Deep mutational scan, measured.
Amino acid sequence: DELEKRVKKIARKLNLSLDQVEEWLKRNNNDELVEAVKRLKKK
């Protein structure tokens, strides 16, 4: 979905793993995208 695409884009842009992106999003209080990261990690 759109949020998952955004997460992947962030990960690529910042050259981070999904775990690192998740931490980064949590620090930025971006719950919506944190949920998207969790969905991606399950895939």
Rank of each mutant, 00 (worst) to 15 (best):
D1V: 08
E2K: 11
E2L: 12
E2Y: 12
L3F: 12
L3E: 08
L3K: 05
L3Q: 12
E4H: 03
E4A: 07
E4C: 12
K5V: 11
R6C: 15
V7Q: 01
V7K: 03
V7I: 12
K8F: 05
K8Y: 08
K9Y: 10
K9P: 00
I10N: 00
A11G: 03
A11R: 05
R12K: 14
R12Q: 12
R12P: 02
R12T: 08
K13S: 13
K13F: 12
K13C: 15
L14G: 04
L14A: 04
L14P: 00
N15E: 10
N15K: 10
N15A: 08
N15S: 07
L16K: 05
L16D: 02
L16Y: 08
S17W: 10
L18S: 02
L18C: 11
L18P: 04
D19K: 06
D19N: 07
D19V: 07
D19G: 06
Q20M: 07
Q20Y: 06
Q20I: 05
Q20H: 04
Q20N: 02
Q20K: 05
Q20G: 07
V21T: 05
V21R: 00
V21Q: 00
V21N: 00
E22H: 06
E22V: 07
E23H: 04
W24K: 01
L25Y: 06
L25S: 02
K26C: 12
K26P: 00
K26R: 10
R27K: 14
R27A: 15
R27M: 14
N28S: 12
N28Q: 13
N29D: 09
N30T: 07
N30Q: 15
N30E: 15
N30D: 12
N30R: 13
D31Q: 14
L33C: 08
L33A: 02
V34S: 07
V34H: 05
A36S: 03
V37R: 01
K38N: 06
K38D: 07
K38T: 04
R39G: 05
R39H: 04
R39T: 04
R39P: 00
R39V: 02
L40A: 04
L40M: 09
L40T: 04
L40R: 03
K41E: 07
K43V: 08
K43D: 07
